[in-house]
Design a protein around this nucleic acid. Structure first.
Lengths: 202, 202
DNA sequence: ATACCTGCCTAACGTTTGTTAGAAATGATG
DNA sequence: CATCATTTCTAACAAACGTTAGGCAGGTAT
């Protein structure tokens, strides 16, 4: 036997990538197996050689979205663990999220946009990956707080929800072709770390 | 003639409210006229007495979502225009957004979740309402800035996008039955105005 | 040459889609 | 009682839906 399933793998990936784009543009029910196939220059029936159902394609697309972002943030935190200031680590983590989010936007925005409208069984099969990502941020923010880098009265869960919500919303308006993602990350990190008011108040 | 179209109006509203809930839960293509009708104890054909098409229902739902939020924020700003501190006005505006967002969540989350996946013609017919709401915030934030209440180096458009993104994301996790919206608004306003770091840094 | 596996195809299934036309029911007005 | 407008219903249309079964072309192994 030669290189096992090589042709198959690239086709599989093409289907997943195409499906991600279609899902995030038209929603779960708005994309048919026939449209996926057509965008891949195939016929609908052929998809069932690589996937057992529409839901399986969807599940893989959703999971890949979070995993890309998780990997990027984990890498950013790993590379700057020592001798880097808290605000720099914060900035790097945000940059990691935004880079992965906006560069694999087919997968990530499929996740952000349609998670709530997919069948509950599919939702359930992506929950673990979601929680792992939330835990990554909670761990990092918890470290910052125990080092005294954060105000004592900020709730980590609240901030994490606000942060990820704000970052994910960039999918709706930011175009990586037109703007610099690193600069965007710096702006966001600055506003979130220091606030926007000229003077701090109660 | 008696009170013109009274029965008709309440039925219309019931259809719109029901449709909003279904749209935000299952997406645009995931909701059929038959399902809308069934949820209203009607038959599909009867819907066409009140609406000319599925797209018309959708358009009205989307517009109502933004208009509710716009009205709430505009009212909050109007009621606190004088003799109120900048941070209080900021907090009230955020509270207005969150209250409307989370209390009319069928309409607002239909808007937030499925705007990008509806037919372009429908998107287009809601753009004006969207822009009016963005202009409301830009005006308020511009006032704050020209009064010297905001840091000079924060970009208003960037912050407005971050702010609305962060606020809208609460739809995905906050339950008004379990938590206090006003308290949520205070927490968010504090984090956004003052930042989360213990000491401000570059 | 034979057999086999991979990858894609065609054709069909039963169901559901948005929408329309025309018939019934309802209740008020003359 | 007859008339009228309002509101809902039924029945049907062509099109599209997810999925399956079986066939066909290509290269690989025996």
């Amino acid at each position: 036997m030669t290189k096992e399933g090589l042709q198959s793998d690239t086709t599989r990936d093409r289907v997943l990538s195409t499906s991600a784009g279609l899902f995030c543009q038209h929603g779960y029910a708005g994309v048919s197996m026939r449209k996926i196939a057509e965008s891949c220059d195939m016929k609908a029936g052929s998809l069932y050689y690589h996937f057992s159902s529409k839901d399986q394609i969807l599940t893989e697309v959703l999971n890949m979205g979070i995993e890309k972002v998780h990997a990027a943030v984990a890498a950013a935190l790993r590379e700057s663990s020592v001798d880097v200031s808290a605000s720099d680590r914060f900035r790097h983590a945000i940059a990691g999220h935004l880079h992965a989010l906006l560069e694999y936007s087919s997968f990530t925005s499929a996740n952000v946009r349609i998670f709530r409208q997919v069948p509950p069984s599919v939702q359930h099969s992506t929950l673990e990956v979601r929680r792992r990502y939330e835990a990554l941020w909670d761990g990092f923010l918890g470290d910052l707080k125990s080092q005294g880098q954060l105000r004592n009265d900020v709730d980590i869960r609240s901030f994490r929800l606000m942060l990820i919500g704000a970052l994910n919303a960039t999918l709706e308006w930011f175009d990586p072709e037109l703007g610099d993602i690193t600069e965007l990350a710096n702006r966001y990190a600055d506003m979130l770390a220091n606030g926007i008011f000229a003077e701090r108040c109660t």
